[in-house]
């Protein structure tokens, strides 16, 4: 059995530290999700309204956010805001801002897509039954849109969790940082620690995202 550097995980508090690192990343993504989802719903609904100015503004926001790599957005907020406004925001705050901006853009697009995917005659037949606009929305449109939306927004959650790995690059302590520290500290006693530690990190991310993806897939199949 070659030395895979797995034993280092069970030394001292290393495993707990790794999990703690993952928790930091998870906390950042959950916080961003919690803000993004309602904001995204709001913007998504606004985008289906016929206000030209609002539409153009949202379109610009959406397009810019979606075409830029999240790393670039992270750099802009983390480095740029210090420079432009003299704020000294923490890496954690910068990440929450960026992931919220990004998550809101993605979510609003999902909401808009779900709303316009509902065929016209659904509105028409509801009106033909004498329903008011708000009754039509409440009983006919929203329930259908929500069914389309839920699997997609669950998928968005996994994408946000995966994206939080990027915050290593601006120095927020989380999984990768912790693993580098562990590897560094055990360089002498277990030279192969890098394999075991990075494999664990890999698996930790996988087991954080996989169940959520499975859930999304199952709901999608059930409701399509």
């Amino acid at each position: 059995m070659p030395d895979l550097g797995l034993e280092v995980l069970f030394k001292g508090k290393n495993l707990a530290r790794l999990l703690g690192g993952l928790w930091t990343a998870l906390r950042i993504s959950l916080l961003s999700v919690a803000i993004s989802l309602p904001l995204g719903v709001l913007l998504g609904v606004l985008m289906t309204r016929n206000n030209r100015f609002v539409k153009a503004l949202l379109q610009f926001y959406l397009n810019f956010i979606r075409i830029m790599p999240q790393m670039v957005l992270l750099f802009i907020v983390y480095f740029g805001s210090t420079r432009a406004f003299g704020w000294d925001i923490s890496g954690e705050a910068a990440s929450v801002i960026v992931f919220t901006l990004w998550g809101t853009a993605e979510m609003s697009d999902l909401v808009r897509g779900a709303l316009i995917s509902i065929p016209r005659h659904q509105y028409e037949s509801a009106e033909a039954l004498g329903m008011s606009k708000s009754q039509t929305s409440l009983y006919i449109i929203i329930p259908q849109a929500v069914r389309r939306l839920i699997p997609l927004s669950i998928n968005l959650v996994t994408r946000m969790i995966k994206t939080t790995s990027l915050i290593l690059m601006i120095g927020v302590v989380e999984v990768l940082k912790v693993s580098q520290q562990i590897i560094e500290a055990n360089r002498m006693s277990s030279p192969n620690a890098a394999f075991g530690v990075y494999l664990s990190v890999f698996l930790l991310y996988f087991f954080a995202c996989w169940p959520i993806s499975l859930l999304a897939g199952r709901l999608e199949k059930k409701w399509s």
Partner: peptide, 21 residues
């Protein structure tokens, strides 16, 4: 596996982990 892990972690594993084996 590929869809449920971030590229950054995949790269770290390939670049720093795999040389050990």
């Amino acid at each position: 596996i590929s869809r449920n892990t971030p590229l950054l972690i995949q790269l770290f594993f390939i670049y720093y982990g795999l040389p050990k084996i």
